[in-house]
Design a protein around this nucleic acid. Structure first.
Lengths: 119, 119
DNA sequence: GCAAAAGGTTTGTCTTGACAAACCCCACAT
DNA sequence: ATGTGGGGTTTGTCAAGACAAACCTTTTGC
């Protein structure tokens, strides 16, 4: 896949889809009307756009995501790391720690993660 | 400061400014022409736009950044963390480790960072 | 004095994201 | 046959980003 660019409206839409999938397209349109104030064509246009980007599929009027929230989070994180930190997680963390103190439980959790990553 | 949104062109411009500052505005326009293919007004417009955002200043035709690369990196990182991981660094790292193995020296560097963050 | 350079601003064009009005087709119920 | 609902598409409008043509003013050099 090429460089993935997602805009705010697309992300909001995906959040709704993840919470509702698998979901009938008309039901999804109703939810978007309720939560985002969208009219029906807006939702169908978004469905078509994200299907073109292969992020979801709409088969037999049932919409399912082709990418999980987790995977999207990871892709976005990697993109940021690559763009701003040359892919270096330590560089990211160092920059981050400069502006903010982590809680002890956060540090413990980080330590555990690193131990697990070693094995 | 409000929620900071920077677009690609702005980021590219800032990279050039950071590499050259303090720099005469006309010299900056020359560099942008060379590296980005911009004409002079484009650069001056960008200078004015980013000055409005208080990201740089142009005094006596000398341009300097008001935000360092480091600080921008941190702001972007925090925005991503907040948007996708509810501000949790461990959650970020866990998601990240799911898709990629870190090198031993990276793990060491991370461990050191965490030890230092404890004191 | 005049032209060129320095240091800009104003206005315009094109592209694209965000959103929807108008419309389409099919199936089903009455 | 007609109306309604389901499931969409096409086309349009508006706003904003990206970029620059045309223009402006001041200073400097000849």
């Amino acid at each position: 896949m090429d460089k993935l660019v997602l805009f705010d409206a697309e992300k909001h839409f995906l959040e709704i889809l993840w919470a509702a999938e698998p979901v009938k397209s008309t039901e999804l349109a109703r939810i978007c009307q309720e939560k985002l104030g969208w009219k029906k064509p807006t939702t169908f246009n978004m469905i078509r756009k994200l299907a073109d980007k292969r992020l979801l599929q709409n088969e037999n009027a049932t919409v399912t995501a082709l990418i999980s929230r987790r995977d999207l989070q990871r892709l976005e994180s990697e993109a940021l790391l690559q763009q701003s930190f040359q892919g270096s997680v330590p560089a990211f963390l160092a920059a981050f720690l400069e502006g903010r103190r982590l809680e002890p439980d956060e540090l413990e959790a980080l330590k555990r993660l690193i131990e697990e990553a070693r094995s």
